[in-house]
Amino acid sequence: MDKLVAMLDTHMRGTDKWKSVVGPKTEENLMSNIMRSAPITVMPYLGGTFKVFTGDVYLVVDMQQHKCTCLTWQMSGLPCPHVCAVIRTLRHDVYDYIDPCFKVSTQHLIYSGQFQPLPTHNMLKVCEAGTLQDGQGNVFPSLQPPQVRRPPGRP
């Protein structure tokens, strides 16, 4: 339990050093997607959706439902290059379209909780003889296989 608490404390202190709205690795992935969105052409489509042409295929981006036909945005929670192209044309902030789990405020909420050890009142205790005993004093045989020799001859 001490290892877990130390690890969580290390991660909490690491989030204090983040200079952006998101962590450094997430920021790096996001900037990569923004750079890859530069040559993408965006056209308005039907009611809040946009048709995005990548040079090879047309994709549909729905900004209201947070969906892109490449499915990267739904799976990762980060805007894909197609969505970044739409965000760029709308002149919105890309951080508004990131899943909240990547943001610093959520990370602080995750790591700020106090962790208490779980009570183990229903766990069996191992006695010196190798038997198991529960909280009421009931004794159970060992869970180890019996110590027997193999019979002679081929199996």
Rank of each mutant, 00 (worst) to 15 (best):
F102L: 03
P141V: 00
T15C: 15
T41P: 02
H108I: 05
L30Y: 03
C80A: 02
D16L: 14
D99K: 13
L78R: 03
G47Q: 14
K17D: 13
M7T: 11
V104W: 03
Y97N: 03
P141H: 06
L59A: 03
D96F: 14
I87A: 00
N29L: 15
C80T: 07
T69I: 04
R13L: 10
V94A: 05
M75D: 10
Y58S: 08
S37L: 08
K3V: 07
M123I: 08
K125E: 10
F115T: 08
M1I: 06
S112V: 01
L59S: 06
P24V: 10
P151E: 06
Q136C: 09
I110W: 08
K125T: 14
Q147H: 09
T49M: 08
P81T: 02
K51R: 13
H92G: 02
C70M: 10
S37Y: 08
V126W: 02
T69A: 00
T41G: 01
D99G: 05
D93R: 15
N33K: 07
E128Y: 01
R150E: 04
C80K: 08
Q133Y: 01
T72G: 00
H82R: 07
A38D: 10
M31N: 13
M43I: 11
Q114I: 14
M31W: 10
M63K: 05
Q74H: 03
H82S: 02
V21H: 05
R13I: 01
W18I: 13
P117T: 09
Q65L: 07
V21K: 12
D16F: 14
A129H: 07
P24T: 12
M1W: 06
L118V: 13
G113H: 11
R150K: 12
